[in-house]
């Protein structure tokens, strides 16, 4: 905790969890898609659904999808901005999302070439956590440079990836591997301490049995 966690951040109001956090979640969903979103189906759950309109949570998630930061004054007019940029969105509210964090949002996104589903929650003070990507359980803060791979669930993939990172002096801060079923697709997420070199996405993408690589830095 540094002093700018106490005074700061500069943000668009009215709520760090329901507005700033919602923008961050939209940002992360956009980064995970990896291209400009063209279509978005967004569902707000629980407290996000109940008090979202008054907190501008609906505008905030759209603003995040457009790539605006939490202190961008265009958040207030995000619906109009989305219209201008050709983002078609549908917003749904689900007040009884059982088993979900009070401030949860899920995105179904489509870009020109890619599709993704992202679920995340706003955990207070503008901090967020992505909890699922394309049906895989994850735990992603977005506070670190991030690598996500979707690959075949077989021995050796994790070792190959971590070796390539070690060669480049990249230290892993957090890491998690999850799969839906043994031997099928698995997802690995890595949060690193160091900035990611531009080539890393291609290098990892060339590994046999890695189907997809997503990288982003906040």
């Amino acid at each position: 905790m540094d002093i700018f966690d106490i005074i700061g951040p500069v943000m668009i109001g009215p709520s760090s969890s329901h507005t700033a956090g919602a923008v961050r979640l939209g940002n992360l969903a956009r980064s995970i898609l990896g291209e400009e979103p063209k279509k978005a189906k967004i569902t707000l759950f629980n407290s996000f659904a109940k008090t979202g309109r008054g907190h501008g949570t609906d505008k905030a998630v759209i603003a995040g999808l457009l790539g605006f930061m939490p202190d961008d004054e265009r958040i207030k007019t995000a619906f109009e901005e989305a219209h201008e940029r050709g983002l078609q969105y549908q917003l749904f509210a689900e007040e009884s999302g059982e088993g979900l964090h009070p401030n949860t949002v899920s995105f179904e996104l489509e870009g020109a070439t890619k599709k993704t589903q992202v679920t995340g929650c706003s955990i207070g003070g503008g901090r967020v956590k992505v909890t699922a990507i394309d049906g895989f359980e994850v735990e992603l803060s977005g506070d670190y440079p991030t690598i996500i791979t979707v690959h075949k669930d077989r021995p050796g993939i994790v070792a190959l990836v971590t070796a390539l990172l070690a060669e480049r002096g990249i230290n892993i801060a957090q890491m998690r591997v999850s799969r839906k079923k043994k031997g099928q697709e698995a997802l690995m997420m890595i949060e690193s301490d160091e900035k990611l070199p531009g080539e890393i996405k291609e290098v990892l993408g060339n590994i046999k049995d890695i189907y997809r690589v997503i990288t982003f830095s906040e």
Binding site: G8, V10, I12, S16, K59, G125
Partner: peptide, 10 residues
């Protein structure tokens, strides 16, 4: 929905 500084919160 204007710009402020959380100090310590919004």
């Amino acid at each position: 929905m204007g710009k402020i500084v959380a100090a310590p919160t919004a």
